[in-house]
């Protein structure tokens, strides 16, 4: 299963640095095949943030496999990230999805 991910960050802010670090750890521990990851800085590429309707940063967008899902925050809650990526079933989550 090929993963295509986009991580929207804001420069080198603390939340963004933590998100990049947490994502690196995840890639090592969780993914069998190397996912295709793009890191996008909203300060340098605000048009991409507009196209993906990004409100909060950091935001990890799972483009593939479907369904597209957004995980906002510094990815510190690993369980929720795994649910967002579809790697563990949703019933683990005590219903904190928004929208």
């Amino acid at each position: 299963m090929k993963f295509v991910l986009k991580l929207y960050v804001t420069g080198q802010t603390p939340n963004s640095l933590r998100a990049m670090q947490n994502l690196k750890l995840l890639v090592k521990e969780v993914f069998e095949t190397e996912p295709d990851i793009k890191i996008i800085d909203v300060l340098k590429n605000p048009q991409a943030a507009e196209d993906d309707k990004i409100i909060a940063t950091p935001t990890l967008v799972k483009e593939l496999p479907q369904p597209m899902r957004k995980m906002i925050g510094d990815l510190s809650n690993t369980e929720k990230v795994l649910v967002g990526l579809g790697l563990i079933p949703k019933k683990h989550l005590e219903g904190n999805t928004v929208q």
Partner: peptide, 24 residues
């Protein structure tokens, strides 16, 4: 709001993304 796509909160964030879009 983007009703089709689910959003999950996984930690700390801020709205600097939105501010960058408004400035743009």
């Amino acid at each position: 709001p983007d009703p089709e796509h689910e959003t999950i909160e996984t930690g700390q964030y801020d709205f600097s993304g939105l501010l960058a879009r408004i400035e743009h």
